[in-house]
Nucleic acid binder design. Structure first.
Lengths: 402, 402
DNA sequence: CCTATAAGTTTGATGCCTAAACTTATAGCG
DNA sequence: CGCTATAAGTTTAGGCATCAAACTTATAGG
């Protein structure tokens, strides 16, 4: 826990810089005068802060806005498309993804390579990752943009203070210092690196996509089941960063045994693998094909597939109603494979939630499907870097101008 | 959601006032120079802020500190014992409690009246409460202290934005505007009133008591089972204020039917009533006597009592491991009746948590029993008022000095 | 071309903080 | 007893970010 810091004038500027930049982030483009009106600052202050941010290449002036009536036209302000970019990396179980994202959240470059990372040692995987990072950095240099930060999504428990990956069951990793290794192997001396759980980054991607809710729990089921909790527009990580573990919440004490040693864990009962097994489509094809097969059978109203999905939805509803009761969240977002299964999950899931959530009478729980595809986590990872700048631009501005 | 506010010099003073006052809150008593050193502010700034707070009667100077070596002695600063007090009210199911608390958290006056509030209409209960509030305010006037705020603990779901009690099952209340009614009936025009859930206030009392953990979940089981979640020294309330509902988390899908319509809810399976029933001590005596009987039997190693308690502990462990996995909390605090049962709950509870919490290998979950008695909730309610001032003293100071 | 209106800049004042000098108070020592 | 070193607390001058208000620039409409 860092001890609280005293405030001075610089604190004021820092706060107001963030306030102004977030007003500018509106893609419709506002003038300095409009920003002043909507932030409550004076035009003079806004001008002064905007000048600094233009100098640091966070903001650009656009064309004069067309506005009816008399008076001078304001110059619209936008986030600089060639401002600092965020680099996202995802170490998946069977692929490696990277992308470059600009301040507006637009993806400017992406890479995807299928690799079976389970069969490789962490050292080999990390050297591949380092190579991918170098490729992305080279591309950023070619584009003439600065990389302001980097996010790395991993399918495991990451200790937020140290960035150490404590365990990634589906990767077979334990105690890997992902941040340190990447710093060393890819030469990232001056770029902030944030390592985090894949489900959490996916939830953040959902948050930053469009104008969705600011409070929700995002569940995604691929190999495991992960949840990302977003409260008041920020990720809830927990004290050590291990928050959002929902996979081993117990749904049935007499349920099937789980690899973790307990019985009836959500992951074991409502995970992708169990749905496929119960639907009778589990064989040695790649997951993607199996899911496609399942969706096909669901569309054809296959009895076993429907029953399997319905049963999973009910278990998911039990676990999620616990989450919602505890955290009082108005929205559940289905991500990953659950997003694709959403049409069949919806009704039983909603029924469970309505019945079990104590406050549903006053604040009904909304269930929505994510519109982001499989790349949600990389986007979230890349986005975390640019969002860090948007949320607190002044240190970046000061560093650039110095 | 309130839109973000611009910062100015007043924001700086406000922030630093809180910083300084929190340093002064250390009961060992520090001089201005020490406060300056530990906050990072200059002596000049600290002097200026302290002068204002002395003027507003939040801080008093004590005797000169005895310190070895040469040099002038500093004057120790303390929270003013006669500064603003907090008024706490608890509307229990079968009692009404009030208390006055000073800035240091010391209880300066307390009242308790047994009343069966279930059998009375909300209007009648509220008029009793208003009377109790008036008594407390009169006592505060007699003591010559100002009442800076008031907290009201109720056993139900309170919407934080409006202060409306949506439902209190064990009281049989629905949609009661407790804040508005009390304001009207007790004439509290200029005193801030905060209405909240009893379990949440109990958790806050635990937080403010001594130097315990800043992140924990506090479970208390009286009639229902309530949880208060404290994260980073603040209560996690959820979007609408309905957070911390743990009583209807499902522990066994084939368990006994619950009044809520589901089966195997934690409250039904591990609540005080079920423990007493399974132990064979449930009759028409008052709850206090029944619990005493149970404790007696446990001390005498009564088989049925031990089995009942153990079974409840396991169920509690299942539910709490879900909570801890989700929120990554390092500590579970047992409150209310569970605190008294703690010696018999510990072992099975810890076993469940260790087995089920995914991150327990890196951050073992600590289980502790609350040292606060049945009055935790009133203390928390009263404390919330003084803590509001301590957390942000400047508006109060400005108002008093104006 | 003049007027009204609005955007954006300049200027002076205000408030809070800092640094450094200054005053006050105390122990240790000859 | 008085001198010196040391530390607490106060005073003063200066910096900095904001604000209010005056000022400059730009545009529509008559």
């Amino acid at each position: 826990m860092s001890s609280p810091q005293p405030a001075g004038q610089h604190t004021v500027r820092r706060h107001n810089s963030a306030l102004v930049l977030n007003a500018i982030a509106d893609p419709s483009g506002h003038s300095r005068a409009e920003i002043a009106a909507r932030t409550g600052l004076t035009k003079a202050t806004v001008s002064s802060l905007v000048d600094r941010m233009i100098g640091a290449n966070l903001v650009v002036e656009g064309a004069a806005a067309v506005r009816p009536g008399p008076g001078r036209r304001g110059t619209a302000l936008y986030l600089a498309p060639d401002g600092p970019h965020g680099l996202g990396v995802e170490i998946g179980v069977d692929y490696l993804a990277t992308c470059l994202i600009d301040l507006t959240g637009e993806v400017r470059a992406r890479w995807l390579q299928p690799v079976d990372n389970r069969s490789l040692s962490p050292a080999r995987v990390l050297s591949r990752v380092a190579k991918a990072v170098k490729t992305a950095l080279a591309e950023a240099e070619r584009m003439g943009v600065r990389v302001g930060g980097m996010g790395v999504a991993v399918p495991g428990l990451v200790e937020s203070a140290t960035g150490i990956l404590r365990v990634a069951p589906n990767l077979g990793w334990r105690e890997v210092d992902v941040r340190g290794e990447l710093r060393r192997r890819a030469g990232l001396d001056d770029i902030p690196v944030l390592v985090g759980n894949e489900a959490n980054f996916a939830a953040l991607a959902e948050l930053w996509q469009g104008t969705g809710p600011r409070d929700f729990v995002h569940v995604s089921g691929e190999i495991g089941i992960g949840a990302g909790i977003v409260v008041d527009g920020g990720l809830f990580e927990g004290v050590y960063g291990f928050g959002g573990e929902i996979g081993h919440m117990m749904v049935d004490p007499r349920g099937p045994e789980c690899a973790c040693g307990s019985r009836g864990c959500l992951e074991r009962v409502a995970g992708q693998e169990e749905i496929l097994r119960q639907a009778g489509v589990l064989d040695d094809r790649v997951p993607e094909e199996l899911v496609a097969d399942l969706l096909d059978r669901l569309a054809k109203r296959d009895r076993k597939a429907l029953a399997a999905t319905r049963s999973a939805a009910k278990s998911l509803g039990v676990a999620l109603s616990g989450v919602v009761n505890l955290l009082d969240l108005p929205t559940v977002v289905l991500g990953g494979t659950y997003a694709r299964l959403a049409p069949w999950l919806w009704e039983p899931l909603r029924a469970e939630l309505t019945q079990r959530v104590v406050s549903s009478e006053w604040s009904p729980v909304e269930v929505i499907a994510s519109t982001l595809g499989a790349e949600a986590a990389v986007h979230g990872a890349a986005g975390s870097a640019v969002r860090a700048i948007l949320a607190d631009p002044d240190p970046y501005v000061t560093a650039v101008l110095a």
